[in-house]
Design a binder for these strands. Sequence first.
DNA 1: GGAGGTCTCAATCAAATGATTGATTGACAG
DNA 2: CTGTCAATCAATCATTTGATTGAGACCTCC
Lengths: 209, 209
Amino acid sequence: MTLHLPSKRCTGDDRRRAVALAARALIVERGLEGLRTRDIAARVGINIATLHYHVPSKEALVALVAESVRLDFRAQAERRPRTGKTALEQLRLEFDDFRETVEEMPELIIVLTEMIERARRDPAIAAIVAPIQEHWRTQFAEIFELGIADGSFRPNLDPVAAALITTGTLADYWRLLTPLRTPLDRVFAEIEHAFGAPHSSQGKQNHVL
Amino acid sequence: MTLHLPSKRCTGDDRRRAVALAARALIVERGLEGLRTRDIAARVGINIATLHYHVPSKEALVALVAESVRLDFRAQAERRPRTGKTALEQLRLEFDDFRETVEEMPELIIVLTEMIERARRDPAIAAIVAPIQEHWRTQFAEIFELGIADGSFRPNLDPVAAALITTGTLADYWRLLTPLRTPLDRVFAEIEHAFGAPHSSQGKQNHVL
DNA sequence: GGAGGTCTCAATCAAATGATTGATTGACAG
DNA sequence: CTGTCAATCAATCATTTGATTGAGACCTCC
């Protein structure tokens, strides 16, 4: 991968990547609403014309950003093997994952939220963003399904509804304006109580099966 | 309320109200991102200068819209007496309320979401929008607290966490891009199961106490 | 009837903004 | 050395957009 620090010229892909990252940073700062092609070019350190050479239009640019976010999410989702774990363990892994993402790449979530908002009136963006949400939801639904079978969770649990509740809770949590003294842990614990098997006291010790 | 159809002149408050409504409609169509003062003026049927006479700046206009949304939410929240009901009944009232809002004034929620997004980088809007969310959350927290006392809900329920889960779930539900064949009812039912007292089978018949 | 305030508009401004043009540079193949 | 092509830039365009100005119209109260 030729970096653009030593040599002045870069390959198109490198430039596009740099543009996407700069755009993401600017979206975090000023929102999609305040995103300007000039600012992106300036942050990358190139001319506006050069930007337009690599990314034909602003519409394409937003799509490029959405796509880069999608890839980042997929990459982050792929580097966790969950095989051979109980459902409860998998659920906690998922929680850890979320906490990690919130703490280490909050910018990624912010941009995703902006994209989701835009997706409501932009089918092209919707097509990119929907799979991300779908995948996340499915992930939880499968965990709950497994958990019903292995006894981690309530027998009368509705896996799909539970997944909707879980993803909705997490997606909305970080959106909260008030910094919120209620820590994420309490929410996680409450979700476990809410979906866990009623008799098995699966508080700290996980003696499933 | 003097309409502006027969007589040409209106009082300032009427105009401001009309401007706010037109702006809300435009936000639904094109987002805050695509909101243009000219378009608002055109929709109201007035000159741009007249718009600026009633609302000094675009910033003030966005604040006006946020404020109008806040008032609408407050009005909608106030017209429901919940005294003398059990916690479970109150929870279901709240669910009915949400469903009604989603079905009858989805535009209100869309605008609120845009405002929440903007609030992240605009303190003035944050100050208007935060109380709405706060109130909603508190509402549920109180219901859960009452429900623990009256036996509707689990004794080990964390009311604040449960409220966060509930509001997060609802707030995120309507945001979903895929029209989602999973009906709201299943989510509601799952929440009731999740927080309900484990032994009392409060599925359809509500024989609390 | 007129003084003063409220309300409205046509015309215009200055800045911002997405996009284009035409020329230049550097790398590399033959 | 030369032709080709990706990559880059300065300059500029055509609109868009938030905001202002100055001239009236309409209403109310005296």
